[in-house]
Design a protein around this nucleic acid. Structure first.
Lengths: 250, 250
DNA sequence: GCTTGTGAAACGTTTCACAGCA
DNA sequence: TGCTGTGAAACGTTTCACAAGC
């Protein structure tokens, strides 16, 4: 990204943060209020596991087995699901296809969400051509970059996505009814891009730039900072080694 | 990835999971035991913010201001840091460069970690050529794929990384003393790759395949599933809309 | 038998509030 | 005055244990 954007929208801001485990569903206060955020995160993992089970022809599964597969207790699984309703069958467990449908409906992925990517660098390319999103309910339908040498380039496909100049974003968002924006630009441009996404009416932002971005409360942001995850890994390795060493010494 | 790997190592397994907020530092029991996992995650974010402050020439910062920048309370910041020692100066705050050094030392990123990437698809390319890792203490020094049409290709750089066939992995790991393995292969291959990384002596795994992988307890795994993050975003958007609608109705 | 859903207990994390120090 | 570090209180989450249902 090279262009200059006019940041129009800076009022009533909300800080993001990828892995907040704090208050149940921070700014919102709807149907699923009392639900702990960690429970919602696990829902996605249950769904992933269930889709695998379904592919293997499995028809029912117990909270015990589902939990074990992911490293949780059976009680945890039951409690998590119970926040949203009664989906199980005593003596039987949960019916795999039924539970999949329920979880998708809870997460809101029982329909297709259209997303756009801003930033056609290596990461942007990878995201735009990633095949896994589609069967999860996400479709990347547009791609933007301000580098003239990249505009017009076709990526992924077929059919393939044409990289558009950034100033066409508002028009394309409206025309295609795009709801999600994925930020894959350098750190310095991230806030400006976020501002423009908000102005364009995007409903949620997935941010890969290693920085916090501020947007109005009504626009949720998920930030994934790859370096942060590597740091957490480094910490766990170092900690493990220290503890192993101290166990050696008695 | 196409090749067939012999999974040799399946004993004393640990389930991974990216955003577990459960017990303080699960399997480990070293110096930093009593530290809540969420506190460790925030440490990375404090560090990111501090590095920005340093770049801006800032010399000291209070817990209040650091917290506000990231959406936390001042007490949270002080408590998090206090788990690891006494770094602050009453009446002054924290000295930015001092705190950066302390946090890096805690996370273990006060030195360079060598990493390899398995899977030279779009995502693998993006990771291998991402410039941000280096200043965070991570260097990608090798790249593997079993697709013959990709082996030999040079990516990123200069100097540039040559894609090696997967069976050279053990040798390269030993020769270059690589400690971290990044998995960027299709789901079906992820567990096999993880097994081989463990056999080769890798100390920690960063997994981008959308699946749980099982490895021995001593090898930490961080899984980042992009679809899971989009699902969380979809949920938050849906929840917000529902709550906004119900407020409308009284 | 086996399994769910759920109050209550146990446990973990965050916030409060203030002593102590620059 | 301004700020940290920290016990104690408040709050949130997970686990337990069991009634109820298949």
């Amino acid at each position: 990204m090279t262009g200059d954007f006019v940041p129009l929208y800076i009022l009533g801001m909300a800080s993001d943060q990828e892995s907040d485990n704090s208050a149940p569903l921070s700014a919102a206060s709807g149907r699923f209020d009392a639900v702990p955020a960690p429970a919602v995160r696990r829902l996605s993992l249950y769904l992933r596991e269930l889709e695998l089970l379904l592919a293997n022809g499995r028809e029912t599964i117990s909270s015990k087995e589902l939990g074990t597969a992911l490293g949780y207790t059976d009680a945890q699984v039951r409690k998590d699901l119970a926040y949203f309703g009664q989906f199980g069958h005593p003596g039987i467990g949960y019916r795999v296809n039924e539970l999949i449908a329920r979880i998708r409906s809870i997460l809101g992925t029982d329909r297709m969400w259209k997303a756009l990517v801003v930033g056609a660098g290596n990461l942007g390319h990878a995201l735009a051509s990633y095949r896994g999103f589609l069967k999860k309910g996400f479709q990347i339908v547009a791609m933007f970059d301000n580098d003239p040498s990249r505009v017009g380039e076709e990526i992924g496909g077929p059919p393939g996505l044409k990289i558009q100049p950034f100033d066409e974003l508002p028009h394309t968002v409206r025309e295609l009814n795009i709801e999600l924006g994925i930020i894959a630009v350098p750190t310095e441009a991230a806030q400006r891009v976020a501002d423009q996404l908000v102005v364009a009416g995007i409903k949620g932002i997935f941010n890969f730039a290693p920085t916090s971005i501020s947007v109005p409360d009504r626009v949720p942001v998920v930030t994934v900072d790859l370096s942060v995850h590597l740091e957490q890994l480094a910490f766990r390795i170092s900690t493990y080694n220290v503890s192993a060493a101290s166990r050696q010494m008695g």
